[in-house]
Design a binder for these strands. Sequence first.
DNA 1: AAGTGGTCTAGACCACCTT
DNA 2: AGGTGGTCTAGACCACTTC
Lengths: 249, 249
Amino acid sequence: MSRARESHLPRYLEIAEELEASIRRGDLGEGELLPGELELAKRWSVNRHTVGRALNHLQQMGLVARVKGHGTHVRPPRLDYRIADQVSFTAMFEAVGARVRKQPPTIHAARADATLATLMRIPVGEELVGVRNGSAVGGSPLSWGVGYFREAVLPGVADLLAGFRGSTSELFRSVYGIELFRAQTRFEVQPAEPEAAAQLRVAIGFPLFKVEKLDTLSDGTPAVWGLSYFRSDAVRFDVQTRPIITVGA
Amino acid sequence: MSRARESHLPRYLEIAEELEASIRRGDLGEGELLPGELELAKRWSVNRHTVGRALNHLQQMGLVARVKGHGTHVRPPRLDYRIADQVSFTAMFEAVGARVRKQPPTIHAARADATLATLMRIPVGEELVGVRNGSAVGGSPLSWGVGYFREAVLPGVADLLAGFRGSTSELFRSVYGIELFRAQTRFEVQPAEPEAAAQLRVAIGFPLFKVEKLDTLSDGTPAVWGLSYFRSDAVRFDVQTRPIITVGA
DNA sequence: AAGTGGTCTAGACCACCTT
DNA sequence: AGGTGGTCTAGACCACTTC
């Protein structure tokens, strides 16, 4: 492959690279606030919009976070969201020492419409319990979404979940004596809509992971379906589909 | 002027929604070119940059694609990239009737450095065959990346792959009599760097799926590791970790 | 040559968060 | 009240694709 020209990089990318270098060098520590757009613009003798673009690029790289009215600060590295057939959201992040905060969920009765019935592979009209929830790790919002639990499989689940902020895996294990398994996970990228943007404290249009999941009982019976949006600057997903052997030395 | 609007939605989102509606209605057919920014700006009496933002938003939603010097056209719906423990990229998309075109791969000898050895779970210094490749579906670029094949597990793989553009799953099955299994897949979102942007025909900064995969033999022995970038407007990933039963009716 | 979208400047107003 | 980033306008220049 010939690499003839690579000299004329856009100015905002040059600035982004300089800022990236100084973050990686450690000139700017984790959580530290960067100067505002106006001051940075003066530093490179460019317009405010040009450094703004550089900062937006760095945000999509996961290096900084921008909050309107507050400023731009250095982000910690992305979290690893590990998914295998057995998963506990809470246990996984606590194992890494991350401080997880779940919002108290909002619960409502629901029934499977045509779309939901297809996604969950259950009959139309079945009784469900809908749960709106959100999570934050290390003080920064991570996810926001909704889940649907089958009342037929998890009787009385609405009362169980009301106000509950712990690990649902443990809850179901102790109350029903069952284990849930991740059967299917779908990943998509979507720009943040106004409501999701507000919940996750990102600007409208910021790229989000849209994740749809289906959890089943051990025999493959569908039990829970969920749709969540995750900040793409805060997380990376790691899905295990088979065991791996480590070779040699 | 009269900004006495009671909708607190940004103007560019209102325009994006109107365009979205007319695409979903079918006023604009798949593949059809939209008017240029200047004409659209006249239509809504706004600046060119405002409609530009609306179009960029629609592109991130996967509804349109923008190509510099060419224009903005309506995209087909996102492809479903189904991943289970047994996968064939080629077979999967051909099953959906999509026309897959793989670029002839570029091959080079390589050795596992510390990073690669950790990722592949093999000893440092092991002999590998590096393969740069790209794919397009339905005439639009989809992925671009690099793969590393273990010479010890797939002897003579460099010669096999040189100029080969078919299904590698089938190739390995017929030549070595082995089946490869997807063991691990990592998903991350990254803004397009200049080189990836050029290969995938998107603007610099456009959000891409960064996908790392590890394929193994049936006993879990690592065989192939790969890193690919996928256009996030063109694809959605669907990972199956367990079988699912369909209930009722 | 004409048209397209990408970049950069310049200035304005605003909503939001902190003090 | 002061500072932050988000939005919108306006105009300019450019690289790229297509004719």
